[in-house]
Amino acid sequence: MKVKMKIAAIAAVAACSMAAGTAQAGKTFDSVKSKGFVQCGVSTGLPGFSVADDKGQWKGIDVDVCRAVAAAMFGDASKVKFSPLNAKERFTALQSGEIDVLSRNTTWTYSRDTSLGLNFAGVTYYDGQGFMVSKKLKINTAKKLSGAAICIQAGTTTELNVADYFRSNKMTYKAITYDTSDETVKAFEAGRCDVLTSDASQLYALRIKLSAPDNAIVLPEIISKEPLGPVVRQGDDEWFNVVRWALFAQINAEEAGLTSGNVDGMKTNKDPNIRRILGLEGVKGEMIGLKDDWAYQIIKQVGNYGEMFDRNVGKGSALGIARGQNALWSAGGLQYAPPIR
């Protein structure tokens, strides 16, 4: 892992120095178009978000975001190649051009958005950081965690949130930071730490990786805001638009009642909003540099936002996470997309 990170860093230097002054807008869009697939950075394995199954097929909500982009670009959601990255490698991999889009449960923050030369294209999942503890400690609130040893994945916002939370509550703790989330789980199971902390969604995902998931509970406190979303390089606006509107199309589709099942039948629907989303009237695909049916292809092949959520992390998955903040704005949640018109 270490070696890979260094290679990535060196690649960043090399890529920056070799490609003298070629960072104009439109570069990624054109290169993706010509190479015929999207290179997508995902996690090294986080159930529900991005994980490879026993056949090597990548699955998860972050994976589907990339598949949606491929569906919009090529009309074929399978034209994606995945690069598994750990938390420390991810930004360097994107900066150096090793990947086209980073869709790896990455939190949108001020410093990442402004100083890394990157742009966040939207929010696929509204998350927040929580704590998981062993049941036998008989603790039911994070306020009683003073003095605990905490396992954390290195290079995440989690490290900073924990420090803030314990400092503001005048508690002490010992942070043990590992490179991958697998190692944090192993150490937590072995009892090296009392607490495992991560984004709440990940805690549920990691919990089912434990040998005895019932022995661990997730505490009710959510100590941070963690809006997760896809990231692209800054100053590459055409590509940024594609990634951003691929996600917006899925959210708009759910709002309009379009699903992968009914989208073909809906082509005859008279509702002008639906007709616009499907590219049958009004707005044209060329505005974003794509075919008119780009959104149709996303809905047909990947599904709308709700389908994607349920299949990977929601009711239809092993994680069983409730929609909560991730419900549509019209259902009391935060998911809201500007209209397609």
């Binding site: 270490k2 990170m5 260094k6 860093a9 060196i10 960043a12 230097v13 920056c16 938390a87 420390k88 930004f91 360097t92 900066q95 410093s111 990442r112 100083s115 890394l116 290195a154 290079g155 995440t156 490290e159 900073l160 930071t177 490179d179």
Partner: peptide, 19 residues
């Protein structure tokens, strides 16, 4: 490597300097 070339690198994003 873990602290400086790991967490510090990731929080600041300044790979070239840190490495």
């Amino acid at each position: 490597v873990a602290v400086f070339a790991g967490t510090t690198l990731n929080q600041t994003g300044q790979a070239v300097e840190v490495i």
